[in-house]
Amino acid sequence: MGQSLSVEINDSNNLSLCKLDIKPWLFSKRRGFRTIQAGSGSGSGSGSGSGSGSILIDIYWDLTYAKFGSSPEPTTGFYFAIAINREHILVLGDMEKEVHKKIR
């Protein structure tokens, strides 16, 4: 877990909407969830990402039962997912049912 993860989200014109550098400390817990608001909208309150140009980026992970091989990446028993405005855009791992339950 000494690595970091970089994610860049671009629009259809290939203009960067946001870039996230996710550091290893985010994964200090073996299971978790993090929401990041990006974009120009200021969206107040608990927000559903409805502000003009506002994007809600949800990051979910569970490494509780992860099994590792000879590399630092888990091989089974994990998930890592990113959703934008509650729509899945990336799901990694072999626990897809669990991550779908989390996002709903």
Rank of each mutant, 00 (worst) to 15 (best):
D21H: 11
K23N: 07
F33T: 09
S52N: 11
S52R: 15
G41W: 00
N14K: 15
R34P: 00
A38I: 07
D11I: 09
L56D: 08
Y60F: 15
G47N: 12
I59H: 06
K23A: 12
G43T: 01
N13E: 13
S16L: 11
L15C: 08
G41D: 05
W25C: 08
D11M: 09
Y60K: 04
R31W: 02
A66P: 14
G45E: 05
G51T: 05
N14S: 15
F33W: 11
D58K: 10
P24M: 07
N13C: 06
A38W: 03
T35K: 10
S16I: 05
D21Q: 08
S52P: 06
Y60C: 05
T35M: 12
I22P: 01
G41E: 04
G32M: 11
G32W: 09
I36A: 06
L17E: 02
L56G: 03
V7P: 00
L26N: 07
L20W: 03
Y65W: 07
D11W: 07
S12T: 12
T64L: 06
S40G: 06
K19E: 06
G45D: 00
S4M: 06
N14P: 06
S40K: 14
L63A: 08
W61M: 00
Q37F: 08
T35E: 14
I55T: 02
I55G: 00
S54A: 12
Q37Y: 09
K29M: 08
Y65E: 15
D58N: 15
R34W: 09
R34Q: 11
G43V: 01
N14D: 15
S6E: 02
W61S: 01
F27N: 04
G51V: 05
G43D: 10
F33L: 06
W25R: 14
D58L: 00
R30C: 02
S42I: 12
N10M: 08
D58M: 03
I59Q: 03
L20P: 01
S16P: 00
D62G: 12
W25S: 15
I55C: 01
L26M: 13
S52K: 11
A66R: 12
P24L: 05
V7G: 00
S28V: 09
G49H: 10
R34H: 12
Y60Q: 01
S6M: 04
G45C: 05
R34L: 10
D11N: 15
L63S: 02
S48W: 04
G32V: 09
L5W: 13
G32C: 03
G51E: 14
R34A: 07
V7Y: 10
S4G: 14
K23V: 13
P24C: 07
S46C: 01
G39M: 05
G49Y: 10
Q37L: 07
